[in-house]
Amino acid sequence: MRTEDLHSLTGAYALHALPDDERIAFERHLPHCGPCEQESLELAAAAARLGLATAVTPGPALKDRVLQRITTVRQVSPGGGTAERARRVVPRGRGLARWTLAACVAAAAGLGGTTVWQYQRAEDAGERAARAEQRAGTLAGVLAAPDAESRTARLADGATGTLIVSEREDRAVFLASGMPEPPQGKVYQLWFDDHGTMRSAGLMEPGRTSQAVLMEGAVDGAAGVGITVEPAGGSEQPTSAPIALMNMPA
């Protein structure tokens, strides 16, 4: 493939839309072409912002309807897992409720990429749903804020990270792409750098290579952001050297 052709692939690469042979050729080209590398990073960050900013939170009416129907849907008893058995134990007309519940769970998982409803009781599901909606709304608010500023950097092992900060919202979002999974029993932890003092800003989900993380706590004048590898559950203070450090967007 000619170099002229490779220069035209930045947009498709940022959207993960290249076939394997072109992706491999482009990734070999990237380390030797600064403009292509920078343009790919900026396009990937822009695509993530646009996609997450248009996320739609299910309305209260849908949530209330789903939670009310949870208590009326019978479950298949152990040992009776055949399709025929399931059709017999579920009263006629209840199938719609089950599809509605599945759709709502899928929608909740897509808002922020990090929350999964695990229904044990309707009350517990309601609390989880409320937290997920609030978090998704805050995340979208930061991404869509008119004063939002971003900074993108290449991390280790070919990963990229984009830090988005809104002074008006006093919150920050970290977008990760291509992050390798942390070692077994470890997790990536985000930190605000308060001019030399590290303040925990939450954990990244270990099993996701690309994700959007609403950083915990206010920005509150922090000078930058760091990422460390910590034991599962996180640490009160960093226990390892940062694998990445990023200054706040100008």
Rank of each mutant, 00 (worst) to 15 (best):
A47S: 06
T54S: 15
E39K: 11
A53T: 08
A46T: 04
G34Q: 12
A45S: 13
P31S: 12
A46C: 06
L41E: 00
P35G: 08
P31H: 09
L52Y: 15
L50M: 12
R49N: 00
A61I: 01
P35T: 00
R49H: 07
A47K: 01
G51R: 13
A53C: 05
L50F: 07
G34R: 15
H32E: 08
A48G: 02
L43F: 05
T57A: 13
L41R: 13
V56K: 02
C33E: 08
H32R: 10
E42I: 10
A61P: 00
A55M: 14
G59K: 07
P31V: 14
V56D: 01
C33P: 00
C33Y: 13
A45M: 04
H32F: 15
R49D: 00
A44C: 10
G34D: 08
A61R: 01
T54F: 15
L41T: 00
G59Y: 03
A48N: 03
Q38S: 07
A45R: 13
T54G: 09
P35M: 03
G34L: 15
A46M: 05
A61G: 01
A48M: 09
L43Y: 00
P35K: 06
A47W: 07
C36W: 13
P58K: 02
S40I: 00
L41G: 05
L50T: 02
A48Q: 08
L52T: 03
A53G: 15
T57W: 11
P35W: 09
L50V: 02
E39W: 03
R49S: 01
H32T: 08
L50I: 06
E37L: 13
V56M: 12
H32M: 05
R49Q: 06
C33V: 11
G34C: 10
R49L: 08
H32N: 09
G59H: 05
E37T: 12
L43T: 00
L30G: 04
G59S: 07
A48F: 15
G51M: 03
A55K: 09
A44Y: 10
G59F: 12
V56T: 11
S40T: 12
T57S: 13
H32I: 06
A55C: 13
G34P: 10
C36K: 11
P31W: 15
L52H: 14
L43V: 01
L30C: 03
P60K: 02
A48T: 06
L41A: 02
T54E: 14
Q38V: 10
S40D: 04
G51N: 01
L41C: 03
A45K: 04
A46F: 05
C36H: 01
A55S: 13
C36P: 12
L52N: 09
H32L: 15
E37Q: 09
L30I: 10
A61W: 04
P60N: 00
A45Y: 09
H32A: 05
T57L: 15
L30K: 08
A53I: 04
P58I: 08
L43K: 05
P58A: 01
L52C: 05
L41W: 04
P60D: 01
E39L: 13
C36M: 09
T57E: 12
P31A: 06
A46Y: 11
L52S: 07
L41Q: 05
A48L: 13
L43Q: 09
L43H: 02
E37K: 14
A46N: 04
H32S: 07
P60W: 00
V56H: 07
L43R: 11
A61Q: 01
T54L: 12
P60C: 03
S40F: 09
H32V: 06
